[in-house]
Design a binder for these strands. Structure first.
Lengths: 217, 217, 217, 217
DNA sequence: CATGAATGAGGCTTCATTCAT
DNA sequence: TATGAATGAAGCCTCATTCAT
């Protein structure tokens, strides 16, 4: 009759795992909205529905909480990338799927963009401490590298490109649009966050990258 | 007997200007290093070598100082762009020169990247107030649009591309590399800030954009 | 079937006692190092190797634990004093032995000095609650008083001194040296905690007190 | 008609020196009552009648304020000692005057005892940083040493005593009585802080020290 | 034009303590 | 007997800003 993990009433949890993740979620929101310096520990606690001190109980301090948020965000991205199963697709399809995924992921995970920008402001000093992230990334590089090679062999790609270089270019084209949408919108006097613009952009990016790969150098 | 624009000693007026620009310089440094929230008014005053109260005298408050820094930064960029004189170049040369300039400008003005990212975190609310910036930008759009049209007419370009779209793609490829260098370096375990990597990247970007324009869709 | 004093496993009861004394030991260390305000309940629990809540279970709260530590410390001192068996010694030997003991006890029980100083900062409000301590002390006063009287009768002492006064003087000479060793060392630029200095001091104190008692007023 | 230093109304001082010393006075009171850990920055500010932040403006942080209080306290003592002009007195008078002064100073400056005890709890780490204190002390040692030598030469003293040793003994006898008055009162069940007891003690100490010096070893 | 003195609000963090199991 | 989860109060300190000269 009694259960420690389910919580019908949803109050005064006393369930460490749930509490931890409520805090993480609130922290992600706050940090992505205001950055590390601008974020308020009090706001995080309030939005997580827990006592302020609990953040310290679980995460040590504001900065460690920030690092946890970052790590979790990256892991979500990598997990989603793995789930794409690119290794079993023909090369063109694989790259195209990856580009579209990269773009869409940021549409659906807006917090990610802000978190990363802020972490770069801090010279990546938080994620530099993580040992897990480089490993996660390596698998991705192998996947993209594989697709590029297969495409080159089969003749659908005309260029030999360093997979890391390509990854960076794709990331650039996808990330910047979301990251700088506000300033660009202001300057172009045009709402880049509208669905129409986003969809147009998505096509443009696919065209540019696929065009680049298909063209003999 | 008193004059604001010239005086017997010929000093006060000049000092005012110099003081103002010392403050701006210190502010740009501080804001680009720490963002709006992370920046410290005290640090700016100290590094500018002036009294804290003077910042308030000249700029009103922290946020207005921040806005001034941003506006000044954008103006520097636009001025440098105008100085390129792209209108008098053949289309391919014009676009190539613009790409290289866009990339190099960020290498030489690192603060610009950080400032823009932070302003995006704040949803561009400071530059949205500026009326001058959109005008400055319009001239650039015209210039790029002109080169694209001329190239299409002469046949060196195979695609009809919206100049704003192209501008965004170029900006993406250039900006992201500098903006996210720290996190990328951490994840790739490779120093993207090294001269070799930077120069390699520069070529890659030119290749990609020019390749895209030269390929029939 | 259940017994509190002995049980099949023969463990729970013994553990309770042991746990209590582990806590007391850790508390004594912490309180003597940092005083009542500076001591941390968390640190005591950690060093005792027990859960924080257990301190509350056994001692009620921080202040009651502090009082327990103090009482235990005093009892140790009084017990050691009783063990000296001064009543069976000739008067000079008795006083000398007591002086040396008083000095050496503090060398070997450094925590005692710090605890007492801190308790004085709090105007002795914790030990004032103890009813046992005055009783313990009375026996000591009788012992010293006895030695003084016997010495006066037999002529080895030339002065009639209030035993409490003498006790205070001895305590002063012994206690202060240990209590203020750090500040004195800093000011004299000389390490008063060295073995040589300590032994020199011990002799000096014996000389001073015995000299005082032996001199006609 | 206007004066920056005098302040009839006595409000909103804007007189750095006065403000600083009001803070120091309040801090001395608070630290001597509660020790470094027990003292409350807010209480100091309140009692000094100034804004909390001003403490930080003038002293940096709580611990530096504490160090300033300590240094000031020591300087007051040394200044008073110098003012005794012992060098011009005959040896017995000099030593006696010094003993009485040492005792009385603590009666009149009760804060001094508490401050020193607390500083010893912290292993004198604050005054160890002071370079001025050892110098101040050296003059005192010379003065006492001079009196002892003159007394030995003239025959009023029978012992050759290290001036530092004597100083420590005097300090012990005077300091301990005030420092441990509360615990002693509790244990002896007798109010050692009463005027009668204090005056009796004063005599006892003079007797003991002078007796010691006058007796051949 | 320039400065040192002063402030109020609020930020991060720590602490002793209690709850629920 | 013992524990991990949770809390409210309060502590130190920093910040942007204003006052008075």
């Amino acid at each position: 009759m009694k259960s420690t993990t389910s919580n019908p009433a949803g109050k005064a949890t006393r369930d460490a795992k749930r509490t931890r993740s409520k805090i993480l979620a609130a922290a992600r929101e706050e940090f992505s909205r205001h950055g590390l310096s601008g974020a308020r520990v009090g706001a995080i606690a309030k939005n997580a529905g827990v006592n302020k001190q609990l953040l310290y109980y679980y995460f040590g301090d504001k900065e460690k909480l920030y690092a946890s948020v970052l790590e979790q965000a990256y892991e979500e991205l990598r997990a989603a990338e793995q789930a794409l199963n690119l290794d079993n697709l023909p090369p063109k399809k694989a790259i195209e799927k990856f580009i579209k995924f990269s773009f869409d992921f940021l549409v659906e995970h807006k917090y990610f963009v802000a978190l990363l920008n802020d972490e770069n402001l801090h010279e990546a000093r938080h994620i530099k401490k993580s040992t897990r992230l480089p490993l996660l990334h390596d698998r991705l590089r192998t996947t993209i590298g594989g697709a590029l090679e297969r495409g080159l062999t089969s003749g659908v790609f005309k260029r030999s490109v360093d997979p890391a270089d390509l990854y960076i270019s794709i990331a650039s084209l996808c990330f910047f649009y979301h990251s700088n949408a506000h300033t660009m919108s202001a300057i172009f006097q045009r709402d880049l966050a509208s669905d129409a613009e986003i969809s147009k952009r998505r096509t443009h990016i696919v065209d540019m990258v696929m065009g680049f790969l298909a063209l003999e150098s």
